[in-house]
Simulated assay, not measured.
Amino acid sequence: MKIWIDADACPVVAKDLICKTAERTQTQAVFVANQPIKVRKSPLISMTVVPSGFDKADDYIAENVAEGDLVITSDIPLANDVLDNGGQVLTPHGIIYDANNIKQKLNARDFMDTMRSTGMLDLTQMGGQKPYSDKDKKAFADGLNKLVR
Rank of each mutant, 00 (worst) to 15 (best):
M115K: 12
N80S: 13
Y60A: 03
P36V: 11
A66F: 09
T21H: 06
R40A: 08
E63F: 07
L121P: 01
D122I: 00
D16W: 02
N34A: 15
D55A: 15
I72C: 00
L123Y: 10
S42V: 11
G119M: 12
Q28A: 14
L123V: 09
D113R: 15
I37R: 02
A57S: 07
L121V: 08
A22I: 03
K103N: 11
G68Y: 05
V71L: 15
H93M: 11
A108V: 14
D75Q: 03
I18T: 00
A57K: 03
V12W: 11
Q28I: 13
P77L: 05
V30P: 01
V13Y: 07
G86Y: 04
V39S: 07
K38D: 09
A33T: 01
V49H: 08
S117K: 13
A108T: 15
D58F: 06
R116K: 13
G87D: 05
A29Y: 03
D122Q: 08
T118H: 03
V39Q: 06
A7R: 00
P77S: 12
D75L: 04
A66S: 12
E67H: 04
M47W: 04
A79G: 15
C10V: 07
L17Y: 09
A57M: 00
K56F: 04
K56C: 09
A29N: 09
